[in-house]
Design a protein around this nucleic acid. Structure first.
Lengths: 217, 217
DNA sequence: TTATTAATCAACATCATGTTCATTAACGAA
DNA sequence: TTCGTTAATGAACATGATGTTGATTAATAA
């Protein structure tokens, strides 16, 4: 393991980190320069290279820290337990915790997931969403027989939707509480977006079944 | 309007464009250099600056061309007509046309909307999706009274989902036809993702109505 | 054919990069 | 407190892409 105890190392690393986050929040992720970071941190430029290979390397490390904290919380979620909360319309605590962690890093995440951010970062989180949704779906509907659209497209739909809601929450400066967003995600996941309008749901399933859109030859 | 007829100008602009698209397809959008583009196009580096300010400027112009072609087709879509096709479970021709245009630029779009792409490009398209969905929703449900979740969050959910399906289609190298994807989007839009599983839809609306997640004070 | 103008070529100053090395000073352990 | 270790500094350097300029060549349109 890494034994970094020297105050000097910890200090400069802290200064560099703070500077990078400030720069990202101001100018986005493009055109970040080592000179900028070290100037802002009041650290010699050469010192930067004592800690990181280059600017992208530093960004990658900080991204990983946050990714890991999010993934750990995602793995705490249990589809069965979540369903139990869903039927009672009560916010699932583990999902609340996950969204709270998003909120804790809101400044960073808002930029990184926005138009000046890093799409590879967004994709890492999206991939994890997809994986979780895939498991959940495999639990509730293991068979492909009755599916009206290909399974992978349904997974893409649902996971994009959920991720999109979280992104929107961050874009709008987390105006709602984690509990409120949890309830939104749970309701729309269980009832579907059309039910959210409160309008009566016309049944088109029978007509839909008549043709085949599956890729199964 | 611009009168560019000179063969020489058209030729070099064509060469530069081809080179840029090749480089993007290979290395993504980051670290694109004027030297690379002009070398690949077999054009003097100075000549590049006769046509574009710099590399980002060129990318922006090409992005705009494609954005415009997509937006034009998006505006052809009519929620009422689409609904008529939806109840018959027949692909809405104008949506097929839109997806065909996506397919025509699949190489470029796959990269630009992927992890090595430009998130501001993705956001421009996403914003247009959001606008279209917002109009559609305002038509079917103009009142906020019965909504189970805030309207803006529902819009974010649906538009992210639709955009996500299109992105997934491109990621997977457009294995399905535009007609097939059209049918997927129409079915899931009208029936909701849960219905796509073919499972019976448990009614949780009454319990959901008991608490309030709206931000309306 | 001729005047126009796009494209080329070479040269230039500028700037961030990544590296090196001698020097300074903060650090932890005895 | 002392002392050996090591992190940080500052200056210098070669490199490579940038954006610009001016003279020259060659393709173009009329």
């Amino acid at each position: 393991m890494a034994e970094r105890l020297d105050r000097r190392q910890a200090r400069t690393k802290q200064l560099l980190r703070k500077a990078l986050l400030e720069i990202i929040a101001e100018k986005g992720v493009d055109g970040i320069t080592v000179t900028d970071i070290s100037n802002r941190a009041d650290v010699n430029r050469g010192t930067f290279y004592l800690h990181y290979q280059d600017a992208p390397d530093m960004l990658r490390q900080i991204m990983n820290e946050i990714i890991m904290s999010l993934f750990a919380l995602m793995q705490e979620m249990d589809p069965v337990v979540m369903r139990q909360y869903a039927v009672k319309d009560i916010p699932y605590p583990n999902l609340v915790r996950l969204l709270t962690e998003f909120a804790n890093n809101a400044d960073f995440l808002k930029v990184m997931l926005g138009p000046k951010g890093d799409p590879s970062f967004a994709q890492q989180i999206m991939t994890e969403f997809t994986s979780r949704i895939s498991n959940r779906l495999a639990y509730w509907q293991p068979s492909d027989e009755n599916m009206l659209i290909p399974r992978d497209y349904l997974i893409a739909y649902i996971s994009s939707a959920n991720f999109g809601v979280v992104k929107y929450w961050l874009e709008t400066d987390i105006k709602l509480t984690p509990e409120e967003v949890t309830l939104i995600l749970m309701r729309v996941s269980n009832l579907g977006p059309m039910s959210m309008t409160g309008l009566p749901n016309k049944n088109l399933i029978d007509t839909a079944k008549s043709s085949d859109v599956h890729g199964t030859p």
